[in-house]
Every structure is written in C-alpha cells, then in structure tokens.
C-alpha cells in the first residue's frame, strides 16, 4: 500500500493533477474559516475592478470580490462533482454488473434502457427535474447523476462480460460461491482501474455540465457562487474584463484537469 503511494507520487501526471486539485481544495478549506470579503457584498461603483491589492482577483460585474466567490464557489463545484460521481458509480455499477454478469434478457432490457437514456437530451431531463422538484442543488446533482449513469454502466458491463467466464470465476462457481459473492468480490476488483478513470472523467464532466447548465440559465440559484455560475455570469464581459472570465475558467480547468491527471496516474500505477 505504502509502496503504491510512493509510486503514485513519482508519477508526474498524478503529481501535477494533485497539485492542481490541492490548490482548489486548499482555497476552499481556507474559505471555511476566512473569506477576504462577504461573497454577496456588492459595490457597484467598483465593479469589474482589475486585480490589485484590495481585491486580489478583482471584482465581478456587481462589484463582488472574485477571490471570495471562488473560495466559496469551490464548495458547490466540488460537492456537485463528488456527489454526481458517487451517484453514477453506485447506480451505474449495479446496473452494469447485472447486465454484464447475467447477460440474456437482463442485459437486453438494461442495454435498451441505457440507449434510451443516451438518446434523451440531458437538458430536457434537467429541466424536468427542476420543474417538478424545484430548482435546488439536490435536483441539479440528481439530474447530472442520472446523466452519468450510462458511462459507468457501459464500462462495468463490458468488464463483467469479459470476466464472467474467466478461469477464476468458474473455479469459484464450482466451489459453490453465490452470484453476488462472485460479482462483487471476484469480478469487481478487476475493473477498479477502469472505474477510477471513469470516476475522474465523470467528476470532470459533472463540473463542466454544471457550467453548461448555468450557461443555459438553469444552474444553481444566484447569488450563491459556483465555478459554472461565475463563468456564465462572466461570459458577457469577456472582452471588457478578460480576467473576470479567466479566473473561473482556470478554476474549472484546474479541477477538471487535476482530477483527470490524478486518474491517469492511479490507473498507470494499478496497471503495473
């Protein structure tokens, strides 16, 4: 175990990714105890101020301190990323493993459902959730989570199909192991590397999708900041105040890229 950690920190991809994520997480952690300004305090006279020593990252279009909003926005963005991945991972893996392991009718039904879900526009799904259950963080996470199921289900399904007739599975079946035991104690560990990559990609795409939803005016409610919301609010000022757009964009890039590169590193180490 310790060996693996050492290896990980010798993998350049992992290290770079870790540093990127660490910067964002560090800012978020500090934000729990100290914020330079109230995130919602407006100062319209000082709007779109360039970064200086009063506002380290400048102010937004309503004169709010961008650094403080990034520090608090990280909470929402990271929360969305993590919860969406957990939701997708649990549901997707369950569904995918049943389809892959049992095959036949179960596989056919599940595959049809996954196709259906993929054919279904994610925006429409998010809209429905928001219309029915109200526009709150939980529903955005649920909608993004549902959208991420196929990704996990497909990977798990193909993994289980590959291993269901493998030597070690047959052996344990002969020894009288139950399906459940085989599925989750014999086969699942083998596809963990794939799942880790999928998780990192899933986290990245959840953060990006939140930005996408915000762009369509469907993201989390103002004035609460998230990286996606900040980016979509900033987009109209891209020519007038480029830094205002750059900062949330860089934050998103750090988070997305950081997780992807950490995922790369982990899968590399696990493959060796």
């Amino acid at each position: 175990m310790k060996e693996n950690w050492k290896k990980l920190f010798k993998t350049p991809n992992f290290v770079v990714g870790f540093v990127m994520v660490f910067i964002i997480v560090f800012l978020m952690m500090v934000g729990f105890f100290y914020l330079p300004y109230d995130v919602n305090a407006m100062d319209v006279v000082n709007k779109l101020a360039k970064p200086d020593n009063v506002h380290l990252l400048g102010t937004d279009h309503l004169g709010r301190d961008i650094l403080s909003r990034i520090m608090q926005g990280a909470r929402i963005s990271i929360l969305i990323g993590i919860l969406v991945v957990i939701f997708g991972l649990i549901t997707g893996t369950l569904v995918g493993s049943v389809a892959g392991y049992f095959g036949g009718k179960a596989d056919e039904i599940i595959s049809k459902l996954i196709d259906t879900q993929m054919a279904f526009p994610g925006v429409l799904l998010a809209l429905m959730m928001i219309a029915v259950f109200g526009n709150n963080l939980g529903n955005i996470i649920l909608a993004l989570g549902i959208m991420s199921i196929p990704r996990f289900a497909r990977i798990t399904r193909s993994g289980f199909m590959k291993y269901r007739d493998a030597e070690f599975v047959r052996a344990s079946r002969v020894r009288g192991a139950g399906d459940f035991y085989i599925m989750f104690f014999h086969i699942l560990p083998n596809i963990v590397p794939d799942l880790i990559v999928t998780c990192s990609l899933g986290f990245a795409s959840a953060v990006m999708s939140e930005a996408g939803l915000s762009y369509l005016g469907l993201g989390i409610q103002p004035p609460t900041p998230s990286f996606g919301k900040m980016l979509s609010e900033a987009q109209n000022y891209i020519l007038q105040a480029p830094w205002y757009v750059m900062i949330p964009a860089i934050a998103i890039t750090f988070l997305v890229m950081g997780f992807n590169m950490m995922g790369d590193g982990i899968s590399k180490v696990m493959q060796h």
């Binding site: 980016l231 891209i238 998103i252 890039t253 997305v256 890229m257 992807n260 590169m261």
Partner: peptide, 21 residues
C-alpha cells in the same frame, strides 16, 4: 511525453464556451 499529454489534457478541460471565444 508528460508535457504533451498535459497539453492534450488542457484542451479537454477548458469549458467549451471559453474555447470557442
């Protein structure tokens, strides 16, 4: 290899809107 793979990662991580603009 590391900088090249990172470069490709960057383009994957920039939000579509920013990339387009």
């Amino acid at each position: 290899a590391t900088p090249v793979s990172m470069l490709s990662q960057i383009s994957l991580s920039i939000p579509a809107f920013c990339m387009s603009i």
